[in-house]
Design a binder for these strands. Structure first.
Lengths: 295, 295
DNA sequence: CAGGTTCTGAAATTTCTGATACAGCTTTTG
DNA sequence: CAAAAGCTGTATCAGAAATTTCAGAACCTG
């Protein structure tokens, strides 16, 4: 349902100005380590990082002033003021042509493996958001914000990492949070204490894993509430799940992309944190304190 | 160089920007003749005219340098640098706003919670791709595609999950892949066999974790090649890293978003899989066969 | 592991910019 | 029209910023 030629039309006019940023990117590999640090700082806050003084720039990049000077000299400028002048002019030109803002990254040949992959992932995220009912999302937030519930995260061989990611955040925001390994041998005995007050949040995408399904079915049978994050074709777990949040996962790769699942996870973490802020804040501070003590 | 209290806030001129330009327009009447000339120049090339030197500005406005100084003083700035700083910040805020502008529906907070979060994440992904040199990315792909190398993934308390995610994929594509827990006690003894042929892929974002840094430094000292996936502020690991891939992580949440890191990870997996396809395909089939047997 | 090369930062040096004092000019006002 | 007040520019200075130097450190390379 998406595009043939990767969002084909984009007016190439802008300026055929190679844009300093682009040049830096393409020459990145030829830079020395400290030049790379300078380059990264500049690109990450382009072009504002370069408008400060040499000293400021150097300190923010974590290198010395002379290294900064060498960096701009290497880029072909006669000195730092010359470099800044170029940045200002480029910025002015760019601001005057509103449309030029779009990424000029499609100039290269078929090389942008990363860029085209990113576009596909972004498409997935958009599609994911569109296909989820806000009410469903909110219902899950409410469920996970209930302090009386016990939350268990689990997932398959790839999605297990996402479950861990979720668990590592929720653990800090609230209590009664844990991670369950997918292998039956590891959770069978824990099932005795799973009941009505428990919530299982399962991650499962195609090549659905039988053991995760089994876990959810067992938990459901004992009265637990199951939340499922899956792909649009729905894991069999959907049959026992109270809430289902599907994410688009197809990418130009031999593998599926979990970015949509991560998006949902992070959005849930953000919303629950906000909802529980009164209790979450002291908790987070306490965790922080404990971490610092240990050093 | 970081922040107090959970980094929730990022300082920027933010909302109610009266914009210096507006104020100048409204006070124009009260200016002296030469101040008016300065004001007109500034407004006609706002704000770039103000980013030059005093002398340049004075000359372009057809007045003397001291008049320019008096002008900015009258506007309430402590000096010319102060004035320029304000212009830069205003400009930066304005240029960055297009992203915030994306979600015009901030009225309630029911539905848009997910949607606006998604927009922010998408912005991060775009910015991440923009700031990575294709050559750098390709270099990492090449490194990870070398069958003679041994690849170790590691990460911090949150990013560790991403390292696991990476490991679970690479493990299938190629051999000599593993995951290292961040705690020093768990890796100290493994370090004896880390050497020149090893590659450490570390995930580390702000609230950089000392144990992960220590691991990378130790590995680096023993000749291993370090690849770092981090945020734009660069983990201290960057010091010893051969390759650095920074991802934007700021989201409308109390937490940082790892979506950019996941994007990079998946893109690396996709590229390496393609590059090693001849050997990866049989491997993947074999893995599949083994999994099916077990049932 | 030595010898050579490259890279890097501390400190000295130079350049240049922003700031100020003061005198001349213009405008205002009685 | 004269005196006062207000502007403005020239000349100068102080200080900050960029640049260069140089020695030590890191990194190759044979």
């Amino acid at each position: 349902m998406d595009q043939s030629g990767m969002h084909g039309d984009r007016r190439l006019p802008s300026t055929d100005a190679p844009s300093l940023a682009e040049r830096i990117r393409s020459e990145m590999e030829s830079f020395t380590p400290s030049e790379k640090r300078a380059a990264h700082l500049l690109l990450s806050h382009y072009p504002f990082a370069g408008l400060d003084t040499v000293a400021e720039f150097a300190s923010r990049a974590g290198i010395s002033a002379p290294s900064v000077l060498r960096f701009v000299t290497r880029l072909g400028f006669s000195g730092f003021p010359d470099f800044q002048k170029h940045l200002r002019e480029e910025l002015e030109a760019q601001l005057l042509s509103p449309l030029a803002k779009a990424s000029p990254s499609d100039k290269g040949q078929g090389a942008p493996a990363l860029a085209s992959f990113a576009e596909a992932v972004i498409g997935n995220l958009r599609a994911t958001v569109e296909n989820i009912a806000p009410a469903e999302f909110e219902a899950v937030v409410t469920l996970l914000s209930d302090p009386r519930r016990h939350i268990h995260f689990t997932g398959g061989r790839f999605t297990g990492a996402l479950a861990r990611y979720a668990e590592s955040h929720f653990r800090i925001v609230r209590s009664h949070v844990d991670f369950i390994e997918g292998q039956p041998a590891l959770w069978r005995d824990r099932m005795v204490e799973i009941g009505r007050r428990d919530v299982i949040v399962a991650f499962d995408i195609r090549r659905y894993q039988e053991d995760v399904t089994a876990l959810c079915e067992t938990a459901s049978r004992q009265g637990a509430t199951v939340v499922l994050l899956t792909d649009p074709w729905l894991s069999p777990i959907a049959r026992v799940a109270r809430h289902v949040l599907p994410a688009h996962i197809v990418a130009p790769s031999n593998w599926d992309s979990s970015a949509g699942l991560l998006l949902l996870t992070e959005a849930l973490v953000a919303s629950v944190t906000k909802r529980l802020w009164d209790t979450a804040k002291p908790r987070m501070e306490a965790v922080e304190r404990l971490r610092n003590e240990r050093s």
